[in-house]
Write a protein that binds this DNA or RNA. Structure first.
Lengths: 295, 295
DNA sequence: CCCGGCTCATGCGCTTTGGGTATGATCACG
DNA sequence: CGTGATCATACCCAAAGCGCATGAGCCGGG
């Protein structure tokens, strides 16, 4: 069951002449004769009819020839495809991101990667920070785009985007039309924050801001994720503090307003397992770094 | 591009453990590690992620695994099929015969061979003796069933059937109802003989009989083959001298009558090239010999 | 009818490749 | 921080493959 013999066999089947086949293979004629003889012994049947000066394939030889050509071609294709996947030129990359990232630069980054590696299938999904971390550790995803960055020494990080915070307010709130908004004046507002779990979360980060401005929100609603929170804002449940980039997408019922007061901003960070050395991941991080530098 | 490495790779992919894979393959672990390393070097990509205690396939490894399984299976199937064809258990056998043979024992012989080797595809065709000889020499057929036997030392022969000659007469001829027919009395008859080419042929053999009986046919019509000749008899063109076995098939317009007089008989003989040692041919001849002996 | 050339098979020595044993390096786990 | 497990490396030996020389069978020409 050795492949070299099949390629030798095919050369002889092509040339119908041991000497020419041997020189085509770059070997001498005697070893070729021996290899063919060994193949015939292995199969237990003559593959060539050598009774005449011009040799010819037997029926068994013809059958084997068809299969052998297919096999050699398929093996070659398999090697090529494996090489391509190994080099990161094809395959699959599972990228997950926090919901609020879909309004910022992430889509542009994704587009850039796709243009560089069009044959890599991208599996995109949205989840909150905790789910991102868990999915990375469980190897359910290769890349996590989190906000804020995940604290885990086993992960490598690439900062993607840093942005200011703004307010998302319902369109029927007086905040929607007020000239300027000072953060310290929001003590009587209902706050919609996210995510609910796990604590401490981005919600706690915002609550810290409130404490810095010497108030506690009058009402506090904790949503599972950004998408739910902004939906609650749009129906008038309360206001939320969100990254500036989400204001690029207009949304019925929601006004985005900047404010005066504490604004440490928020950062979007790309994460991958350090031990995931797959070319797809390395190349994605590379594209991301160049993408960030070019801005 | 060596196949052993693929089977080794598959063993490791199955076990995800070099030690177990090695013992399953019946080799020690170090050479297995080396072969996998060589395969990875050949492909230029990691196939296994060895960073953890439990190794796992990389994307490239998964791609190769799928292809490798198919390849190994197909190669195995190819060897099996080639073996079967080489042993004569499958494949193709091209058998040609003279038209007058299709009424005798040949169909039974064919049936017997089919029952012994049902997977061998039989390509049957009818042609006259000259065409049979030419087709055998040109290797267009493997077996020729000729009448009389072909004179060629390069052919091996198996006598199949020996039979008497009888007359085929039109049903409106007075010969059809006559009590007994003496061959010598046929001088005033129109003879339909075959084949037309090449001379000397079966027709000349019959004409020799006439000369032995001291007459020349009043009229002589030469047909291309037996089928044409019997058709001419059926429409009243004349009488013909045919092997007895054709009378087993009744034919509208034709009466078969035995006669008194010279009757050297005629023989059906199976031929194959001596240098055609294919199992299909040898086995057919073997079946034929046993078939003849059993009668 | 024999001889020479062509073609595939065989004998023999050498190189390459593959496998075995011993051991090292790394990592998880107690 | 040691211990066992696991894969990689070092080294040696056996088997397989290759090249060269040569034999055997066949065909065509003198």
């Amino acid at each position: 069951m050795e492949l070299r013999r099949l390629t030798y066999f095919l050369a002889v089947a092509d040339e119908l002449h041991f000497g020419r086949a041997a020189s085509r293979l770059g070997i001498a004629q005697p070893p070729l004769s021996r290899q063919i003889a060994a193949l015939e012994a292995d199969i237990g049947a003559q593959l060539f009819d050598r009774s005449r000066s011009q040799i010819r394939l037997t029926q068994a030889g013809e059958v084997l020839e068809g299969h052998a050509r297919q096999l050699v071609d398929r093996l070659d294709a398999a090697y090529k495809e494996t090489r391509l996947v190994g080099a990161g030129g094809a395959g699959r990359l599972r990228v997950a991101f926090v919901g609020s990232a879909s309004h910022g630069v992430l889509p542009s980054l994704i587009k850039s990667y796709r243009s560089h590696y069009p044959k890599v299938e991208l599996a995109l999904s949205a989840m909150n920070n905790a789910a991102l971390h868990s999915a990375l550790v469980q190897r359910e995803i290769d890349i996590a785009v989190a906000r804020p960055e995940l604290k885990d020494e086993e992960l490598r990080r690439v900062p993607l985007e840093r942005e200011r915070l703004i307010l998302a307010v319902p369109d029927n709130s007086d905040l929607a039309t007020r000239e300027t908004i000072r953060f310290a004046e929001l003590g009587d507002q209902a706050f919609v924050l996210y995510p609910r779990r796990p604590r401490p979360s981005y919600a706690d980060f915002v609550l810290d801001l409130c404490r810095q401005a010497d108030f506690e929100p009058a009402t506090l609603e904790l949503a599972q994720d950004y998408q739910t929170a902004i939906a609650l804002v749009s129906v008038g449940v309360g206001i939320s503090v969100v990254p500036e980039s989400v204001s690029r997408t207009t949304r019925p019922g929601v006004f985005f307003r900047s404010y005066e007061g504490p604004n440490p901003g928020t950062g979007l960070t790309i994460h991958a397992r350090r031990d995931n050395q797959s070319r797809q991941v390395l190349q994605f991080l590379d594209v991301a770094q160049r993408f960030v530098r070019s801005r």
